[in-house]
Amino acid sequence: MRVTDTWYLVVGALLFSVGAAGVLLRRNVLVILMCIELMLNAANLSFVTFARRLDDVTGQVAVFFVLVVAAAEVAVGLAIVVAIFRQRRRGATADDVSLLRG
């Protein structure tokens, strides 16, 4: 059996679905951040696959930029998390950050 591009793209799409479900299901802020990383990786995998399929370098450049963006995003997100935890050090868990309360 030959491995076709569609296989890679399906893995990417499933990874994206799992990440999106994780963001909606989990309530621990750190785990939600990790799920967002999963989604970005799914996009990256699709970009690289399309780049080979199209024989075009744009997809790889995109992944390059996304890596930078993701690193900056994580740094800022974790800074906010640390600030929240420092503000109420007493017995706080990530559950206290009531997200998605509408």
Binding site: G12, F16, G19, A20, V23, V29, I32, L33, I36, M39, L40, A42, A43, S46, F47, F50, T58, G59, A62, V66, V69, E73, G77, L99, L100
Partner: peptide
């Protein structure tokens, strides 16, 4: 959290459009 989620969704949309 919601903004980063939206950015990731947008990025995947860009990948598919590309």
């Amino acid at each position: 959290v919601l903004g980063s989620f939206a950015s990731a969704v947008f990025l995947y949309g860009v990948a598919l459009t590309y």
